[in-house]
């Protein structure tokens, strides 16, 4: 069974599971564990310190029947849902910035074509561009898994990854 952020004194930490999205503000941390080919999309408005994190799994929600029910599952619908919820909370659409992490391709199976991670990355980037949200930082691709932690207050996206020897690397975006 999973455990949740219960370290004493730690700020509230919300786990954003696969296909979920969460909008928050201030020093809450939003976490997604074990992204392989999934893409974490972090949007935030530096002025209001409102931000959100989505743990998306597939590229194209407009094609899918259930994207109304699960907007966080698809890169395109997740970005729109995050933006909408942030604006509802008081964020200003024009100042929102984006950071992305994930989209690895760890297996080279024939059935995977160009790579399932790559498809997600392309979809996320395309949707951001369509909506005019600047992508200010990213840690994408490769063949390693990542765990991300996002703090809306600062817009910091911490990306933890480990190499083959088990050494943990942390990248701050």
């Amino acid at each position: 069974m999973k455990t949740y952020g219960t370290e004493p004194g730690a700020p509230t930490s919300v786990q954003v599971g696969i296909s979920e999205l969460t909008v928050s503000d201030g020093d809450d941390t939003l976490k997604s564990y074990g992204l392989g080919s999934c893409v974490a999309i972090a949007l935030y408005d530096p002025e209001t310190e409102i931000g959100g994190l989505a743990h998306t799994m597939l590229p194209d929600g407009d094609e899918a029947e259930n994207s109304d029910r699960k907007p966080g599952k698809y890169a395109d619908t997740a970005i729109r849902a995050l933006l909408r919820r942030m604006v509802e909370r008081g964020a200003s659409y024009t100042t929102v910035e984006a950071k992305l992490a994930g989209g690895s391709d760890m297996f080279e199976f024939d059935s995977f074509g160009d790579g399932v991670g790559k498809r997600n990355i392309d979809a996320a980037k395309a949707e951001l561009e369509k909506l005019g949200v600047p992508l200010v930082a990213s840690d994408l691709g490769g063949d390693r898994g990542r765990t991300v932690e996002f703090t809306p207050e600062t817009g910091t996206l911490l990306v933890k990854s480990s190499d083959e020897n088990g050494d943990q690397g942390v990248t701050e975006l």
Binding site: I18, G34, S104, M106, V116, G117, G145, E164
Partner: peptide, 19 residues
């Protein structure tokens, strides 16, 4: 294909492809 990584990361590519 050998993998040595966080558990969920090893499984999600497969889930995505089937998805």
């Amino acid at each position: 294909e050998f993998i040595h990584d966080i558990g969920a990361a090893a499984v999600d590519p497969v889930v995505i492809q089937l998805g």
